[in-house]
């Protein structure tokens, strides 16, 4: 087992366990969209298995399926019944995914670095599209809810989801840059890129976990100084309530 295999193994565990826990929680509270988010993590984790088994040409299949789940999460959470770039972005991801898969299979057979590089760019493009759209949607939604009277920790969730999505773009950029830099610097930057990928993924997974399983202490920290305007619901009969509203409206 070499250093890259160790990376794959850590990555597999690091993504799959929180992903499964998020899915279980989402199923319990009937949130299909969050199940998709868990599936993103699980499929990204599973993408390590072909790497360990020396079948790395299958890795993009798992990763791209994961990115499609992330797109479904973004669509279902932020854009239902709304104008959305989902169909166009989905087509882009499918084209990039098919390109990556073809290139990886061809690259695996004829071992041409130039062709493999096109595969890397295609995979990075899928990753970039899926995460950037999620980040954009989260930060845009934050703007829409920031003036509402809700606990601040809910608002923080949008900010973190948005920022972490953009952090996930970093490995995509590193993957694109490493091949030309290898030529220029006459070195192999792949282990460094893997390390960068591992670090950004660790940060992302940690924050994702906190987002979906926010501990009370973290909630309290974000909600410091916030006082709820919520008042207890009055025990009124239907008639009393309707009469009261009618009187208010008629004033």
């Amino acid at each position: 087992m070499d250093i890259i295999d160790v990376f794959y193994l850590i990555y597999l565990i690091m993504m799959c366990i929180p992903g499964i826990l998020i899915m279980i929680k989402a199923l319990k509270i009937n949130l299909t969209n969050v199940v998709y988010f868990g599936l993103l993590m699980v499929f990204n984790g599973l993408a390590s298995i072909p790497g360990i088994l020396d079948l790395s040409y299958l890795t993009p299949v798992f990763r791209n399926v994961g990115f499609i789940f992330l797109m479904l999460f973004t669509q279902k959470t932020f854009y239902e019944n709304k104008k959305s770039p989902f169909p166009i972005l989905l087509i882009c991801i499918i084209i990039a995914a098919v390109t990556t898969i073809i290139i990886e299979v061809v690259g695996f057979t004829i071992v041409d670095p130039a062709i493999s590089y096109i595969g890397d760019i295609s995979l990075a493009t899928s990753m970039f599209i899926a995460f950037s759209w999620c980040g954009y949607a989260a930060l845009t939604s934050y703007k829409e809810v920031k003036s509402l009277s809700i606990e601040p920790h809910f608002k923080k969730r949008y900010q973190f989801l948005g920022v972490v999505a953009f952090i996930n773009d970093i490995p995509a950029i590193l993957f694109v840059l490493q091949a030309p830099l290898n030529v220029v610097l006459q070195t192999d930057l792949l282990p460094l890129v893997f390390l960068g990928f591992l670090i950004t993924s660790m940060i992302a997974v940690f924050i994702y976990y906190i987002l979906w399983f926010m501990p009370t202490s973290v909630k309290n920290y974000f909600n410091k100084g916030y006082t709820s305007k919520k008042s207890a619901e009055e025990e009124l009969s239907e008639e009393e309530l309707m009469k009261g509203i009618k009187e208010e409206i008629d004033k």
Partner: peptide, 13 residues
């Protein structure tokens, strides 16, 4: 409700 739809997920978790 459509504009703020993400709150349906957010306020539930």
């Amino acid at each position: 409700a459509t504009k703020k739809q993400s709150l349906i997920t957010n306020l539930k978790t």
